[in-house]
Amino acid sequence: MKFWEVVMPDGNSDPPSPPPSPPTQTPQRRRPLVDSAVLGTLAFIGTELMFFTGLLSAYNIARARVPASIWPPPDQPRLPVEATAFNSVLLVLSGVLVLAAVEALKRDKKFALPTAVVGWLLGAAFVALQGREWADLLSQGMRMQSSTHASFFYLIVGTHALHAIGALAPMAWVIGRMATKTATVGQLRAAQVFWAFVVLVWPVVYVMVYL
């Protein structure tokens, strides 16, 4: 079963578009190839992808304009490369768990809910730990106005954090519906697809900005 295929509520997992029915029959509704919530999310992710592309291209252009010896500026605190690597592992783990939760919900397994909850908590832990790193950097005197490097760091990482929060909030809503057994696979899939985007864009940000 391909990942974009979604089990219909009536249990039919195979949605081919019907041939034109004979004129006497009442028209039937089209069975979408990709669930509408997922397709809408994918369209939105396309924009988000270009948004991050814009930010990271701008960062790379600004970086290429100055000698490597002053990027980052020598008088500025170093970025917490190792601690962030640990946080990144949490984030990737969270992405895997949420994906597993979708597959479990699709097969109507009981562990779908706890898997989703743990995945959500790991994601929230990532955001919290990253926030603590920011607080550390700020207390060491690295401000957004300190240098172009610092501006880009706070801008890009902050944008990613906002996206993580923006992905966790609807996911919490879907998990709430899962607890009351009213969530559809399409809804969880839509939340998961956006979360997957947040998870997958992070390694790119990490490699470009931290390393």
Partner: peptide
């Protein structure tokens, strides 16, 4: 589609 694919970098610039 064109709008959604092209607007990202400008939003980045606008921020």
């Amino acid at each position: 589609i064109l709008f959604m694919a092209s607007v990202g970098p400008l939003i980045a610039g606008a921020v």
